[in-house]
Write a protein that binds this DNA or RNA. Structure first.
Lengths: 242, 242
DNA sequence: CGATAGTTTGACACAGCTCAATAGGCGTGG
DNA sequence: CCACGCCTATTGAGCTGTGTCAAACTATCG
């Protein structure tokens, strides 16, 4: 992807220049001085699928922007049943503003690269910039909307509607050009069947069967278990129940 | 309930003096001058079960605190399937800070009394008081936590675990003294069986059967279909699957 | 090319849904 | 105060979608 041209791009830290968080993410609240200040303590990290980002001690005192890849947020019951309660895509913000408990785990679902900064830095910036706090509020409201939409899916949709809804959601999130539901979409599934099942409140087998059905009905094609082709997004949409 | 004693209670608007929102709700962010200013444009309203609070045009430009009763937030699929995506108890805040779409409906589940104020007032206060915005952020984070907890319930719990979780949630919300799970609890169900079903992603019949089972197992007693007695909250808790 | 992890498919079981009938609560009017 | 009707909740019988268990298949990588 080409680096975006900015009026003051010379003032903008190298790390930030091609970062979407500066445009659509929380960093959009910051001016170039603040960006410089923030970038002094921030580091770019790459992690592999399965890496725990929140839940172990290592990173409990830091915040991150997702630069690429997908992070899954999960909650578990004591007997091991697991539910994915959210997915983070670039340029989403990761980490909890205040210190409420909420035993939530964050784990890389794919290769993920992050821009991380220590808690102290964020808190200082929050004090300096009300605009930043407003961004956080907006991001939180967006997450709340997503969570509620998903509650409808979990509570009221059939297995096949769930799988269709999932595919539509992934298609529009991994590549925004898929969003205009005109025509076709191609994308890689960032989650394994087990993850998809945990996201949809289903079993692996049911997910697999529904994908097979969508394939049999020519709504989708799948290559190598990962790459999905949707020729007609509106057909997929009609299967979501919405 | 007795009016709480405050140092400056003489400065505090009558309407606010016994209002929990001033202590645990968003109004806690305001000083007495601001309270006076806010109360000038606020009105107390009482509505009956079934009244639409958000979704019709009437109230789209106002915000409220819930003073008493329970408000249900619902989302629906086009074919009529419905899911309750949240419940608001006193002294929760009702209404969306910014104007994101999110086709959500709010409806009184019981007799509800509200303290309502026009959008313009809130927006003016938001500009004047960063503390208020922080309260909103915290309330939103709390809602997000609740939504995620409920996603686990919807996605991964059995019908009987769902019903037990629901009872526990109601018990702790309608009367905070039930929260310390020492011993017993008594409360009225604020929702009909149909509402409970919409909340849990079940049918009326399944809800009814699970309640019958809890009754048969002497975990709860029910009087007049509404009043619930729990002798041993920890027994109920053990049925939630958490 | 074999090992391993992930995925698909099949056969069967069962939790929860559907449809239908009964029972109970509550307000209205005699 | 009881009788009636309405609405909500319960109970029953049977069905079906999804889960369970097990086996076969496929991609990927050393």
């Amino acid at each position: 992807m080409a680096v975006r041209q900015d009026i003051h791009s010379s003032d903008i830290p190298l790390l930030c220049q091609s970062c979407e968080a500066r445009h659509r993410g929380v960093c959009g609240a910051l001016d170039s001085d603040q960006l410089v200040s923030l970038s002094k303590t921030s580091v770019k990290r790459n992690v592999q699928p399965g890496a725990e980002l929140i839940g172990d001690a290592e990173m409990i005192d830091s915040y991150s922007n997702v630069l690429s890849g997908v992070v899954k947020l999960t909650k578990s019951l004591s007997d091991g049943r697991q539910q994915i309660v959210g997915l983070r895509f670039a340029p989403d913000f990761l980490g909890r503003p205040f210190e409420f408990e909420s035993a939530i785990n964050a784990e890389a679902a794919t290769d993920v690269s992050l821009c991380s900064f220590p808690r102290a830095t964020i808190e200082r910036m929050l004090r300096a910039s009300p605009e930043l706090e407003r961004r956080l509020l907006k991001q939180t409201l967006k997450e709340l909307d997503q969570a509620r939409d998903w509650m409808v899916t979990l509570g009221r949709k059939t297995a096949s509607e769930k799988v269709a809804s999932f595919l539509l959601m992934i298609a529009t999130n991994v590549d925004p050009t898929n969003a205009q539901d005109t025509g076709s979409a191609i994308f890689d599934l960032p989650l394994t069947r087990a993850d998809i099942a945990d996201f949809l409140g289903l079993t692996i087998e049911t997910v697999s069967r529904q994908l097979t059905r969508l394939r049999a009905d020519a709504v989708i094609r799948i290559e190598n278990n990962r790459r999905v082709f949707v020729d007609d997004m509106s057909r997929l949409e009609r299967r979501t129940g919405a």
